Simulated assay, not measured.
Amino acid sequence: MTTTTPSRSAGIGRVLIAVYALLALAATGRSVFQLLDDFDKAPVAYSLSALAAVVYIVATIALIAPGPAWYRVAWITISFELLGVLVVGLLSIFDPVLFPAKTVWSGFGAGYGYVPLVLPLLGMLWLYRRRPRAVVADDAALARSTGV
């Protein structure tokens, strides 16, 4: 028995990938500017922005690339993204001293129209709907496995 993964880059998946790519570009640009210009002011916040950029880049690639290994990478990065948005979002609200400057995930992604909060939820839903399915190699194997 083998597994097959439905294409993650078909249909609405293309829109999801485009939004991830756009967010990867925006987060990368923001973090590079922050790291080069004001790193001393908020090293934790700016390092988290750089981490978010890397997560968005890897998630974008994982959503595009075929195969079960990339499917797992997509789940890992998108889950990490959601965890990051929730943790940084809560910390930036309840302990703003930790984040004297805004990050991509501050305030649950408020600076990006809350897209960083909604995107991983949509990504997880899309991945679930595109999960690998077992495929029987041929009719003979199916007959042997069912006893027919």
Rank of each mutant, 00 (worst) to 15 (best):
V136H: 05
T103D: 09
P6F: 03
V115M: 02
P6W: 00
L23C: 13
D40N: 10
V88N: 04
P116K: 01
E81T: 14
W75D: 07
L23M: 15
R144L: 09
L82P: 03
A52N: 04
D38W: 05
L142M: 11
R30N: 14
G111H: 09
V104A: 11
V55K: 02
L36Y: 07
V73D: 06
R72S: 14
V19N: 03
G89H: 04
A18V: 11
W75F: 09
I57R: 00
A101G: 10
S145W: 08
A74E: 00
V87R: 04
F99H: 06
S145Y: 07
P96S: 12
L83G: 13
A141E: 15
S31R: 00
T146H: 05
A18K: 03
V148R: 11
A74I: 09
Y71S: 12
S106D: 08
L90N: 14
A50R: 00
P132V: 09
S31W: 00
P68H: 11
P100D: 01
G109P: 10
R14K: 15
L48A: 04
I93Y: 11
K102W: 09
A42G: 08
W105N: 13
T4S: 12
G111Y: 06
A140T: 15
V115R: 00
L23A: 12
I78G: 05
A42E: 07
T60P: 06
V104K: 01
Y56K: 01
R129K: 13
K102V: 15
D138F: 00
W70K: 09
L25F: 13
A140D: 13
V118S: 04
V136K: 02
K102I: 14
D40A: 14
V118N: 03
A45P: 05
G67V: 12
P68D: 14
I57V: 15
G123C: 07
V85T: 10
R72V: 15
T3A: 04
A53S: 11
L16F: 02
R14N: 15
A42T: 07
P120G: 05
Y112W: 10
L51F: 13
V58M: 00
L98K: 01
